[in-house]
């Protein structure tokens, strides 16, 4: 090994050097943390300030008193946060419930039963996992247009039943936690296969379901492309489509209203994140080990 000379030098490294290194480390970490926070902090503060205030001084670290006026101006335009909130809630909840339930079911089928096409089916799921959603967008729109299903929530909810990435995750989880003895003893007790899945297997999967539900919900909530393609009726707009209206002429000089609108649209996500951040961080890490 060539590392011998280098090894000698380690104990010599001066204390001052390690302290400087430590300071640099913390400085960079704190700097990045500040960069993460500051845009949102300015957003919240400016949401409470009047547009003339913002125009003369765009950065303030203390709130002002114009939150009511900003909200008033905001709702006089086309932006309607409540409609966006409700629509996004319907679509995201529907899609999340369907995808976690059916992904668990598919994963259970892959783990608990020995069938001829099991391995080919799993390889197929792995293969379609990487297909980008936008490849099918034009055909999907044409298909829905032909069925007169644009401005309908179903095309944004039903396809969630086939979520290959989630099936993969659920399968990994089941393989690690499910003992087939439990399933067998349920059979001896006369439990049917569907009953076993719903009553015995699903409860075992709750930690995995919770993790995947968070990511599915947030992903659906933030989705812009497909909802914007399909939903043209303003009363059907989701929150992200609603946000795009803030670029309209009405809000061009109403800075305060734009900031308060952004605060309102991001508030539900901040709430979810700070309540569940521990699970979210752990969930991201789990996603990385899939290979």
């Amino acid at each position: 090994m060539t590392g011998f000379e280098k090894r000698e030098s380690i104990p010599k490294s001066s204390n001052a050097g390690t302290i400087t290194y430590k300071v640099v480390k913390y400085f960079i970490c704190i700097l990045l943390a500040v960069i993460s926070i500051i845009p949102f902090y300015i957003m919240i503060m400016n949401g409470t300030r009047s547009s003339p205030e913002i125009r003369t001084n765009a950065i303030a670290f203390l709130p002002s008193i114009y939150i009511g006026r900003n909200l008033d101006v905001l709702t006089r335009g086309s932006f309607d946060p409540l409609v966006g909130l409700i629509n996004s809630l319907i679509i995201s909840s529907g899609a999340t419930i369907l995808s976690v339930y059916f992904s668990s079911l598919t994963a259970y089928g892959l783990v608990a039963y020995n069938w001829k096409l099991r391995q080919p089916f799993f390889s197929f799921i792995m293969a379609v996992m990487m297909i980008p959603a936008q490849v099918s967008a034009i055909g999907f729109y044409q298909f829905m247009y032909g069925l007169n299903m644009t401005n309908n929530y179903l095309p944004l909810i039903i396809p969630a039943i086939a979520a290959p990435g989630m099936v993969f995750f659920m399968r990994q989880y089941l393989m690690a936690t499910l003992h087939l003895d439990i399933v067998n003893s349920a059979r001896v007790d006369g439990s049917g296969e569907f009953h076993t899945f719903n009553r015995i297997v699903l409860p075992i999967m709750i930690p995995a379901i919770a993790t995947q539900a968070i990511f599915s919900f947030v992903g659906n909530w933030n989705n812009l492309f497909l909802p914007m393609v399909l939903l043209t009726d303003k009363s059907k707009y989701t929150m992200p489509i609603m946000v795009t209206l803030l670029r309209g002429d009405f809000y061009r000089v109403e800075y305060g209203s734009v900031y308060i609108a952004l605060t309102l649209t991001t508030l539900p996500l901040f709430l979810i994140y700070f309540l569940l951040s521990r699970y979210i961080i752990a969930g991201v890490a789990l996603g990385g080990v899939k290979e």
Binding site: P39, F40, M43, V218, W221, N222, L224, M239, P240, I241, V243, T244, L246, R247, V258, L262, T265, T266, L269, F270, I272, Y273, I280
Partner: peptide, 11 residues
């Protein structure tokens, strides 16, 4: 975790 559309307007 924050909506990309909101971030784009914010920036």
């Amino acid at each position: 975790i924050i909506t990309a559309a909101s971030i784009a307007i914010l920036f």
